[in-house]
Structures are given as C-alpha cells and as structure tokens.
Nucleic acid binder design. Structure first.
Lengths: 335, 335
DNA sequence: TTGAAAGCGCTAACAT
DNA sequence: ATGTTAGCGCTTTCAA
C-alpha cells in the first residue's frame, strides 16, 4: 500500500488538488466551496485514511509545528519536570518538542540555535546561557517567538517566565535571622546568570539589613560531584562559626548535605539548613530539609502558554511573568 | 539578506545545481568532478555561509536525521539521564532527538508513533508499553530501525538493550537470605512489562530455592504519591513479621521509605531495605540505602550505538544486549 | 465555485 | 566531467 498524496485524492475524486487542499485546511467556506463537495472529499479522506505529508507542507509554508526546548540539562530534575509539562501542552496543541541541553555553554548553544533555525523550528522556549544575545535578537527580529524561562538575558526584549528569586532568598534569610541565627552562609554556584545573581542579592540584602556579616561560597561547577563536595567541606572548615546555611540551588544543597555528613555535623543543632528547590531528598532526609519550592507547574504552563499565544498571533507587547515561590518548613531549621 | 538556495550558488558560480549538490554530499569523487571545481565551489559555499535547507532535503530523500526517543516519562530521573546521554551521541552524529513520554499508555503511544511516522523520523529508541506490537512490526517491516531499551515486547524481533533484571533481584534476595533474613518482601509496581516480570521472577526464584515464603506487594500506580505510600503502609500493617524488603523500582523504594517513616520503622534494625535503582535519596538517606544500580551510561550508549549502526547499514541480525547491574551495599542491610 | 500551474529547495536519473 | 530536468507533496496565485 503506497502512501497517498493529495494528487491521488484529487484524481480519485475528479477534482483539483486545490480544492482538496482548501478543504483540508478548513478554508472551504472562505473559498466558497460547495458543501456537497466538501462532504464528499472529507468522507473519502477519512475512508482511505489520508494524512497530508508534514514535510511537504513545511517546505511550502515554512512552518514545522516544532518547538525547540533548550534547557540547561535535561537530566536535572527541575528541567526534566518542566520539560514533561511543556511536552504535554505542546502535543495537545499539535506541536512536537525537539529539545537539547545547553550545558550553559555559549558556543554549543549557538550551534544548536543555528541548527534549529535551519530546520525552521516555529518557536523557542529557552533557559538561556550567557552570550547568545545576538542570535536571540536576530530570531526576534525575524518575528520568531522566543520565550525565556528560569532566567533572562539583559537587553533582550522577549517573554520571560521567572520566579521571584531575590524575594525567595531574602525571605529565607530573614526567616533564619528571625530564628536567631547570626552567622548565616550562602552557598551557591559561581554563575553570572540572572537567577543566580538575584538569589545572591536577596541573601545579601537581608543580611545587610540586619547588620550581620555575609558568608558567601560560590562553588565552581564540576562534572565530578565529589569535587564540589570538597569545595563545600573546605569552606565549612574555614568558617567554624557558622550556624546556618542557605543553599542557592538544588545541587548545592545535596552536595552541601554530603559535606555536612562528612564533617559529622548535626542538623539543625550544629547547623540549620535551607535549600533552594525541593525534591525527594529533602523530604526524606532526616532531619527533613526546609526548602524553597519552585512551582514547576506554573512555570511550565506560563512558558508554553506565552509561546502558543505568540505562535497564534504575532505582535503584542512582551510579557514578564514573575512567579512567587513558597518555602516548605521542615526539621532542618527547628531550634 | 535572503536565504540562499542551491540554485543561487549554482548561478553565481556558473555551474549546475547537480554539481553543487554532489559536492555538498561528498559524491564529487564518485562522480568524477574535477578537483579544481570542487575547491571553487567549496570555497564559495564557505564564503557565503550557505547551508542546504534540511526540509527540502528531507522531502526529497525521505530522511530527516531525526530520532524519536520514546520513554515512559521524561521527568523520571532514570529516563531523563538516559535521554541526556542519548542526546549527546545523537547530536554528535548529526541526528536530533524528538522525544515524548508514553506514560505506558498504549493508545497515546500509538498516536505518537503515527505522528512520528508521518514525519518520516529516521529511527526509534523506545521503552515500549504493552500493546503496540502491530505498529512496531510494521515499522520494522518498512526497514525503519527500532531499538528497545529497559524492556522488550515478546514476539518482536528487533535490537534490545536491557539489564539483567532477574539476576539482579535474584542476587539481592539471596544476599538478604544469606544475611539471615527469613521474611523477605518484594514491593513493586503492578505491571505486565517484561522488566518488571523478570524482577519479580528473580525474587521468587531465590525465595523458593531457599524454601522461604514469598511476600509480594504490587502497588497500583497513582499520580498521587500519597496513595501509593498508603498502599505500602497497609501492606506493612498486614505483615508485621517482615524483616526485610526488596523494592522493585525507584519509586517503589522512595515511597516505601516514606511508608516506613510513617510507621516509625528503624532501618535496618526493624527492617532491612534494598531498592532497585540508585539515586541521591538512597545515598544521602540515613541510614544509607543499599541499591541495585543500573549502569545508565552503558544502557544509553548501547541503545544509541545499535540504532546508529542500523541507520548506517541496514540488514543485520538483531542484537540483544543484556547489561549486568551491580549492587551498592550500604547501611540499610547491616545487621 | 473550481482548476491549472508555479514554486518551496533539493536529489538523481538521464543526457551530453 | 557537467548540465537538464523531473519530481518529492504541498500551498496559493491567478485564471476561468
């Protein structure tokens, strides 16, 4: 059974391809095609199970119904979960997702963008690394929809979905201060990305407002987890007076717990702990770990909705959606 | 700046499209095109940064350089990690990945397969749900490469990458038996998938060989985690004599830990624990949890390599790669 | 209301 | 050794 083409359909029904095409694309009314013919064609198409070839359609229209999803790392639970939810909505709306992990690597991301552009991807949802302003701007200039999430790029005007990073760490830090802790550290990754900067700022702001001293450790990311643990161990050894730690990211938190375990710290007696991002590790750990929880559902939903809106109707003012986080208080900060 | 086409290049250089096409596709030698011309064309192409339109190419050749990756759930850490590694190799070899989560839902998966087929995806890497034999068989009949991983479908002859599920649980159960535990439960998901059956078989085999009694709980999967925890809690309440539990899957394990916590069990004194799959939760839990670790790297690598091999040269005997797991012994089974 | 035909950009059979 | 040309299957302008 050979694959049917629109020409086959037209030939069988003794009509032109044009008519069939119009009917397939719901333009029958607009084109004032007789109802009788419309029905006849639709019936036949259903009967033989004809499906238009999307490749040919794409070549002709330049639309692919494919959305590129560019995350930092698809193996990261946060990005994987967001991807899962975005995938759902996308498929529901007739779009497929082609994804990739940027590793926050500028060059790699540029190459990926070039590839996607060649393939005429319809739109982009990106957790952008630094240094891709130019490429993104030229996409925007071509009226290709781009939605940022998790972070943004300064100077780029496009839709963004973010959480209120600064508020989150500000509040968490204040919580620790109010609980009576004085020496509070912020352990995070060394990064220039906007979300990481904001988290650091929130911490600093709270500490400074309380007239306390800041203790900041910015871990250098390393494929080898043990090396990151070691960085935290060293930091802890150098700052014996610490009473509480706020971890600025999930992996900082889990590695931090490993470091604290290695050094035999008792949580929360020797050290109170709060971490950004929530996960099973924190829920199940004993003591359970207080965490700043990102509303993944809202983030994913907002991102895909913004993109779909843009795909369906161009030209509107870019939106910035800031989503509030909530802290889940657990045993790791009980005095 | 308009997008260049092969016709533009040909016109500029006063040669035919054919020549340009052959040179682009590395068939210059085969077609005995003069070296001088090859160089001239290549130079010009590089100069103007011309890239062939993959859409047009695909329409013509029927090849898309896209691989479909169908996992159970991309938000599951196991599948996300495998996806990450497969993504890497695929991009390195000039293929892109379009993925989807099947939810082990037969109907959904069939629809997805239809969609991918319409889009002329070049090959498939699938963790297959039940009931899609027919669709898969017809892909294979069309000589479309399909590689299964994590599980397989009975009666379908195609490349498979799996771990030695039965051996894994057999060995783990035996380990518990040798440690002196008598009442050993197997808590897993209710599933007809091959890998889950094998895990159950391995447990039964070991228990029976030792002349012990089996205690089996097959959790009904539920989006609501608490409901799954409750199922385990109920099971534990009904079997007060249990001394050890082997969990047949990651989520069974984490939910099991929650259940044990709820009931105030002390691990390993009140209950020894081993879980299938390893993750941070088990490493960081106190006591740390003994786990059967799947070699994710090997799984991903084998799967993508099998597929790439098939994409590059059809017709070869299908391979079944069985990968050994290793147990990571931790405190949860120390007597 | 319907149809003919051009063309999206590429490959490859066939010609020269 | 290089060129001509017919499609791949679709959309859309223009004509009837």
């Amino acid at each position: 059974m050979k694959k049917l083409s629109i020409a086959d359909i037209a030939a069988q029904l003794n009509v032109s391809k044009t008519v069939v095409s119009f009917i397939l694309n719901n333009r029958a009314e607009e084109k004032r095609i007789s109802e009788e013919l419309v029905l006849r064609v639709q019936k036949y198409i259903k009967e033989v199970g004809y499906k238009p070839n999307p490749l040919a359609k794409s070549l002709r229209t330049g639309k692919t119904n494919i959305i590129a999803l560019m995350v930092e790392n698809i193996a990261d639970p946060f990005f994987a979960s967001v991807a899962r939810l975005i995938e759902n909505s996308a498929y529901k709306n007739g779009y497929k997702i082609i994804y990739c992990s940027t590793d926050n690597n500028t060059e790699k991301t540029k190459e990926l963008l070039t590839m996607f552009r060649e393939r005429s991807v319809d739109g982009y949802i990106i957790a952008p690394p630094e240094g891709i302003q130019e490429e993104i701007q030229s996409l925007i200039d071509e009226a290709t929809p781009v939605v940022f999430f998790d972070r943004h790029l300064p100077n780029i005007q496009t839709d963004v979905v973010e959480i209120d990073n600064q508020d989150s760490t500000f509040n968490a830090t204040n919580y620790l201060i109010n609980e009576g802790y004085k020496s509070i550290a912020f352990v995070t990754f060394s990064s220039k990305l906007t979300q990481m900067k904001s988290r650091l700022d929130g911490y600093k702001q709270a500490i400074n407002a309380a007239g306390l001293k800041t203790y900041i450790k910015q871990i250098i990311f390393d494929q080898n987890e043990d090396k990151m643990v070691t960085q935290i161990v060293d930091f802890l050894k150098k700052n014996k007076n610490l009473e509480a730690i706020l971890f600025g990211a999930l992996q900082a938190g889990t590695n931090g717990l490993k470091a604290l375990q290695q050094l035999g710290f008792n949580i929360p007696n020797d050290m109170a702990v709060i971490s950004f991002d929530d996960c099973d590790v924190f829920r199940l750990y004993s003591p359970s770990i207080t965490a700043i929880s990102q509303p993944i559902n809202q983030i994913a939903e907002s991102a895909i909705n913004l993109l779909l809106k843009r795909l369906n109707s161009s030209a509107q003012k870019q939106q910035k959606i800031i989503i509030k986080t909530s802290a889940v208080y657990r045993q790791s900060v009980e005095k």
